[in-house]
Amino acid sequence: MDRIPILKMGPFLLVTIQVDMHDRLALSLQDDLAERIASTEARGVLIDISSLEIVDSFIGRVLANIAAVSRVLDAQTVVVGMQPAVAITLVELGLSLPGVRTALNVERGMELLRAALESETLGSDGDASTAF
């Protein structure tokens, strides 16, 4: 069974989804990520879905679960690069992923994770909800 590779970049984990994701693959990503966050003590997870052509309710739920699980494991999750057509469809479907942070691209996502980490180490409770 193929798996989606998880890259470690400093305190963050980077996942680039480049295949047409079927349900089992999504579930194994969810499990793998939880494992890796725990084993690497990662503080942030960045999921790049810019090449994903659709996000249906199942994948949407997996993304929300990943965000929730990593929050419990003290890591922030940012989903980046969602295509406009995918976003429109997801909203129409009734999914707005309220617990998931988003950014336009990997670069912005990284900035967001770094800013979150900094504000945390500075001791403030800065929990900005959107990236700029």
Partner: peptide, 10 residues
């Protein structure tokens, strides 16, 4: 919906 979609895109 536009606002929600834009947020999903970041």
């Amino acid at each position: 919906k536009t606002v929600a979609a834009a947020r999903l895109m970041g």
